[in-house]
Amino acid sequence: MRITEIGAGTIGVSWTVLHAAHGHEVTVTDPREDLDEAVREGVRRFAPALGADAGELLDRVRTEPDLAAAVGNAEIVQEQGPERLAVKQDIFTTAGAAAPADALLLTSTSGIVASDIAAGLDADVAARLVVAHPFNPPHLLPLVELVAGERTAPETVERAAAFLRAVGRDPVVEHREVSGFVANRLQSALFREAVSLVRRGVVSPEELDRVVTGSLGPRWATGGPFLSFHLGGGPGGLRHMLTHLGPGMSRRWADLGNPTLDDETVEALVAGTEAAYGTDYDRLTGTSDRAQVAVLRARGPEGTEESR
């Protein structure tokens, strides 16, 4: 399959590694002057986590700075451009006109809904456009949120889901559009309280991370919030849990923090995090990737779309 990745940042190169590892031909397009170098370095950085040879993957990857030329024979177009509505609209105006008439158009946007991106696009282009929001890094983490816009054709969602399953992802088709989708909204909610707790002096950034990795992280890796509480209720399940512990939880909702990311808060968070972990991106990424691979292997296929 011929796939074009628009954007040579972390997400675009991560997708490139995944697709090349599955034997697909990948073209990466980006106007940046260091496009070739960025793609080579990214592939070499991410390939080991998949047990893949970077040189073999790069044999399936080419670069093309011109967007129209890059999508000219693509079967799948994935966009990872700047998170600005006008930019994404311009990208899909060009890509929609230059790509084959049956090419699937996916956007990895982290929060802009497909209906807004499709506004002003030709009907046939809008019908082939769907949000396919991954969780970083997409070459490792299985979730992809599929969110149709008002003009997205049902068969586009079906084709996107089939394509993503074929490269080992677990697409979750969401029932309606909402800014930020589901995963980022959950992440934002948890991070808001994390920031509040750190700023109130309850814990440091490193200590808060240890709380999560020693409790919620392992629990949610195997069950998620609803199943976890369902099991936490014992034989009575979620009903027992909410009946007995729900009132206290509800009181805590009213006490959750509502911090702002002003300059002072940002500086405090960055200083605490850098003091705990340093700034060696390659080292931190390698450690994180190895740990995530181990968790996913231990978790096995249960809970993925392939096992249903």
Rank of each mutant, 00 (worst) to 15 (best):
P154K: 12
G214Q: 05
L256A: 01
W15P: 03
R159H: 10
D34A: 04
T304P: 01
P82D: 01
A103E: 01
Q78L: 15
V212G: 08
V131K: 03
T93E: 14
A291G: 13
G246Q: 02
W15C: 04
G233T: 07
A98H: 11
V293I: 06
Y281K: 08
P48T: 08
T107C: 05
F135K: 10
A189N: 00
P138F: 02
R200E: 15
A20T: 12
S215E: 02
V61Y: 10
I11L: 13
D280T: 08
A183Q: 06
D90T: 15
A221H: 05
L35A: 04
E158H: 07
A54C: 08
R308H: 14
A271N: 07
P142D: 06
V113A: 13
D122W: 09
G234H: 02
D124W: 06
E64R: 07
Y277I: 07
E306A: 13
E150R: 10
A47W: 05
E174T: 13
H24S: 10
T29S: 10
H175S: 14
V270R: 09
G237N: 09
D30G: 02
T94S: 11
P138Y: 05
E5M: 15
P82V: 09
L284P: 02
A97L: 11
A101Y: 03
H24A: 11
T222S: 14
A69P: 00
E75I: 12
A298I: 00
E264S: 15
A49H: 10
V211M: 07
T279G: 05
A21M: 03
R192V: 05
V178R: 12
A98C: 08
P48Q: 06
L284F: 01
A86L: 14
A298S: 09
T109Y: 00
G149T: 05
S14L: 05
G111D: 03
T285S: 14
R60K: 07
E177N: 03
R219G: 04
V113G: 09
V147C: 11
T94V: 15
F92M: 06
A47I: 05
G12C: 09
G278E: 11
R44H: 04
V131F: 02
V87S: 04
E193V: 06
T109V: 01
E37Y: 00
L242M: 13
L50G: 03
E207C: 03
L105I: 08
L50F: 10
D289E: 15
